[in-house]
């Protein structure tokens, strides 16, 4: 039981990761694929943030009353990764808009039919 609850964050990370990855692979709708991709990325963000957390730790401030610190570096890294994720999603959505204008559909099954005609 300790094994399950003690690693609670990491279980959430793995479950989210698998959900996201599964959506990317299984869904035919291009927007849904991007949603899956986002969930997948977010799970990694949680992984980084959980890693850095120390129970009872504070920000590394050099003062007499604090002695236990949590590392702020992963949080900073993840801020960057979030920006990258936002850029990826917006580019992906922009592409989906253009695909819809060019093909008239965003379903993978119908797109593959169009592909054979081209």
């Amino acid at each position: 039981m300790e094994y399950l609850t003690g690693q609670y964050n990491y279980w959430v990370v793995i479950i989210l990761m698998m959900i996201g990855f599964y959506i990317v692979i299984s869904h035919g709708n291009l927007v849904k694929k991007l949603i899956g991709l986002n969930i997948f990325q977010v799970s990694v963000f949680i992984l980084y943030i959980s890693m850095a957390y120390v129970r009872g730790g504070t920000a590394p401030i050099d003062a007499a009353e604090y002695s236990l610190y949590a590392s702020p570096l992963p949080h900073v890294l993840i801020l960057t990764a979030i920006v990258v994720g936002v850029a990826t999603t917006s580019l992906g959505l922009a592409l989906v808009v253009r695909i819809y204008r060019a093909f008239g559909t965003i379903e993978e099954s119908q797109l593959s039919h169009v592909e054979e005609d081209d």
Binding site: L37, L47, L95
Partner: peptide, 25 residues
């Protein structure tokens, strides 16, 4: 077709990049 090619590359490429991110983490 360039749009579809770019979209598929984006999905695959982002999965790859996220895997790299997990590894680095």
């Amino acid at each position: 077709q360039a749009l579809l090619a770019a979209y598929r590359y984006l999905i695959m490429g982002t999965i790859g990049a996220t895997f790299i991110l997990i590894g680095i983490g």
